[in-house]
Write a protein that binds this DNA or RNA. Structure first.
Lengths: 102, 102
DNA sequence: TTATGACTTGTCAGATATTGACAAATATAA
DNA sequence: TTATATTTGTCAATATCTGACAAGTCATAA
């Protein structure tokens, strides 16, 4: 599973941008971008934000995919993956931050 | 969130076992066990299995809690935590291993 | 063919994080 | 006090991650 990298590549190609161009704005070299797109290396959180700006993409979408990749990495070989995710989800519900100024 | 460590401690105390006794069977020292119970250090997967044997506990329950802790660690500060978990969950459904000899 | 541009692969040292082990501190009870 | 249980802090060894670079492949064009 490499949802983040796949999406980044998709967006980049849709907009006919070269790795060189995107990498430049991220201040990384093209080998690094290539690896991020293929899921061989993981982008930093700040880079995910930058990706969304460069690619005029939905920041929330990219962060979600980026997180999902990391989560999936942990549970991917586990029979109890779904159970574990549900437990984590419940904990998220429980400890959800109150919305500021709601 | 330290569901695994909390459960281990609960089980250990229910059975009036000392850290020393449990640690011995795990081949770790008591400071290490103390840290695992309090979530300061993470148990290895093999140790989770051993915990379930020592404490006569449900192996699946402990593995699930242990995984959930690790997953939660990744998403705990994220507004999109739940979304990300749902994406990961869907991927688990999709790529679930067929049950052997079903 | 050679040349060029886009991308990928492999490597590597430096930085960072994790690990297991130990001493020492604290707590609790006799 | 003493002894026992647990926690805290530290540390070197190890493992993992990181960024950067050279060199590779692949496709297209001259």
């Amino acid at each position: 599973m490499n949802k983040f990298g796949d999406r980044v590549r998709e967006l980049r190609e849709q907009q006919n941008l070269l790795q060189r161009q995107v990498a430049g704005k991220l201040d990384i070299d093209t080998p690094m971008l290539s690896k991020i797109e293929r899921g061989e290396r993981r982008a930093k959180r700040e880079q995910v934000i930058t990706f969304s700006e460069i690619l005029s993409a939905d920041q929330n979408e990219l962060i979600t995919l980026w997180l999902a990749d990391r989560v999936y990495e942990i549970v991917k070989d586990e029979d109890l993956a779904t159970d574990a995710l549900k437990v984590a989800e419940k904990e998220c519900e429980y400890s959800k931050k109150p919305i500021a100024k709601a």
